[in-house]
């Protein structure tokens, strides 16, 4: 009984806050996808018109698919880049590990916009990378190298996300009982086998958490694609934003967001068959 009281006290403020300022507005937003228009009388008329329109538009569906693929690629790459660093910090960096970890994270404190603008400077035709390469004789003067392409989006997002992903992976590795590794050595495993059979499986929750940290928001990303993506690097988030901010077509914007939510939740759901969600949170 006493315990129920404690749970109630601990949970009530957060639950009330989330219901009032998140769930209710979100439901209202979800209902918008069935509405005729954004304002006035059109708000009260219900319709499935937007659903028909959305699923009839092949270009929209194609872009959604492409964005999921691109987000997936970015997430995998980011994990691959971040894992060795987290591994090094956790196992080999000794007492310096927190300082070094902080070094990795500080760049994330500079405004996102400024960091993306800086990448524009690096990747541009007369930019830093192009000048450097032409100085080396590897590229010709004046060619637009990487900027305004899907690749530029991948590089920039990779840059933005690496610090955020290193963190959960590092936390996951830190939780591994180092005695287990000793035990594996004692049982005759070499370093590679130990990594493969012990470290990696145990670090998986952290890796998955890092993966989702990137994958989920990247599907809805629009600032980076707009600034460095060019015609081929546009993502689904850009047209969702257009529907909300340019057309004021809130019903379609709400529907597109729902579509995005579904494609994000499906992999999450599949994952949850293998890993308990709460494990991802480190519980």
């Amino acid at each position: 009984m006493e315990q129920n009281g404690r749970i109630a006290i601990l949970l009530t403020p957060t639950v009330l806050f989330l219901i009032g300022l998140f769930l209710i507005p979100l439901l209202v937003m979800g209902l918008f996808s069935f509405r005729e228009g954004s304002f006035g009388e059109a708000q009260t008329a219900f319709t499935l018109r937007h659903y028909a329109e959305f699923f009839a538009n092949e270009a929209y569906l194609r872009l959604l698919g492409r964005s999921v693929v691109l987000s997936f690629g970015v997430s995998v790459l980011t994990v691959l880049f971040a894992f060795p660093v987290a591994y090094y910090l956790s196992f080999f960096a000794g007492d310096k590990k927190y300082v070094l970890l902080t070094i990795i994270i500080v760049p994330a404190w500079v405004s996102y916009l400024l960091r993306v603008l800086s990448w524009k400077v690096i990747l541009g035709g007369s930019g830093a990378l192009a000048s450097f390469l032409s100085w080396l004789g590897l590229a010709q003067e004046g060619g637009t190298l990487l900027l305004f392409s899907p690749e530029a989006v991948v590089v920039t997002l990779l840059y933005v996300w690496v610090p955020f992903v290193a963190l959960p992976i590092f936390a996951g590795l830190e939780r591994i009982d180092k005695d287990l590794l000793e035990a594996a050595y004692d049982l005759g495993c070499n370093r590679l086998q130990t990594f493969w059979r012990v470290t990696l499986p145990l670090s998986l929750p952290g890796v998955l958490a890092g993966f989702l940290f990137v994958f989920i928001p990247t599907v809805g990303e629009y600032v980076t694609p707009a600034l460095v993506g060019g015609p081929e690097g546009i993502m689904f988030g850009n047209i969702v934003r257009d529907q909300f901010l340019r057309a004021l077509n809130w019903p379609m914007g709400a529907l597109m967001s729902l579509a995005m939510l579904v494609v994000v939740l499906v992999p999450l759901f599949i994952l949850s068959r293998f890993v308990r969600l709460s494990e991802l949170a480190g519980l």
């Binding site: 329109e53 538009n57 872009l63 257009d242 057309a247 077509n249």
Partner: peptide, 19 residues
């Protein structure tokens, strides 16, 4: 009008989303 604006944005978004 609102309908015209939505139609033009839809057209432009379809262009952007097309290969």
């Amino acid at each position: 009008t609102e309908a015209q604006r939505i139609a033009r944005t839809t057209l432009w978004d379809t262009v952007k989303a097309s290969p």
